[in-house]
Nucleic acid binder design. Structure first.
Lengths: 189, 189
DNA sequence: CCTACCGATCGGTAGG
DNA sequence: CCTACCGATCGGTAGG
């Protein structure tokens, strides 16, 4: 038994039924240990969550880097970042569900670190959006904040309805979402 | 004391800290009753949640009706529905947070009723989208489902970042979101 | 609406 | 990694 295996079991359980309703007894059952024995490998229930969330968000930041640094036109970079998001989502669906929706259950210290990571995540989209407005490729929206959070809301909500068994593969799913975010619904013909 | 006052107190607490971590003792403290005394007015903790969620979603369905029945061009109807959503959101922010994010904590029976209401909510946007494609005003997306859920994801996520103290009033906020959903980010000039 | 309490479950620990 | 257990808290009830 390793801390890694325990984290994996906790991840699956948190994703399915949320942190507060999962007990150490559930996690113990999943790995074949008694609840008290878990503490030979991990230090607390909250630390399990903190590790899962931190890694879960960092997975996204890593994939965004090229699109943040690129000098391509902003709409291409925005589509690229959206597709990168979906790529990570497809690879880490359960962890994403925990990372983006359950960080609120962390205590004060760990929660602040996560809020910092989330800000880095949001700043990727904000930066690309601003570059597009400066270039003239993006509309100057009534509110920059709302324009960016709307796109991010689309992406984070996708973790609730993306399914690996869906008709579209991850790539096509990413294209469809990128289109929705960047081009909207209206016909341009 | 009335069941209504207890529901209002529970609503505030659930919204702030989520259903499973709120105890009947917290609700009792909020209304000045001992936990056991609550059961003279309500029948269970879960019924509190079920009532809050059901009413919270129904508030939206009521406001959507005109835009579902209208024969205006679909982009106008879609913008109207988005603005109607924001109007209800501004009026029932806390209840919306509970209704759209915490229905999963309901037991099987109540959860199924809520899933039916959510489906009605989604069908409003699906219907307007389809009408727009038939009219030629909306692009035929790679996936109808994704196009619609992307818009809905924007809206439901807004309950996490809408603030009544924000720079924009509810009306302007609605316009900004309608623009993001219908027109996307790209400059059309 | 209070008093008094129920059995169950919680995260976590001591000692081996 | 188990045995055995800690104090705290949970939703809910009986009886008045």
């Amino acid at each position: 038994m390793s801390a890694e295996e325990i984290r994996a079991a906790a991840l699956a359980l948190f994703s399915e039924r949320t942190f507060p309703v999962i007990g150490m007894r559930d996690i113990g059952d999943a790995v074949g240990l008694l609840p008290g024995s878990l503490y030979a490998h991990i230090s607390s229930k909250e630390e399990l969550l903190a590790d899962i969330v931190t890694e879960g968000i960092t997975n996204y930041l890593v994939e965004f880097r090229p699109f943040l640094e690129s000098r391509d036109p902003a709409p291409d970079r925005m589509r690229g970042a959206v597709k990168a998001h979906v790529k990570v989502l497809a690879k880490t669906l359960e962890q994403t569900r925990v990372a983006f929706h359950q960080w609120r259950f962390l205590g004060d210290g760990a929660r602040e670190k996560v809020i910092d990571l989330r800000k880095q995540y949001e700043d990727v989209f904000l930066q690309i959006y601003r570059d597009g407005v400066a270039e003239g490729t993006f509309r100057k929206a009534r509110s920059e904040r709302i324009a960016v959070l709307a796109v991010i809301g689309m992406l984070t909500s996708a973790s609730e309805w993306y399914s690996p068994e869906g008709r579209l593969g991850a790539d096509e799913f990413g294209e469809a979402l990128a289109e929705a975010a960047v081009d909207g619904l209206v016909s341009t013909s």
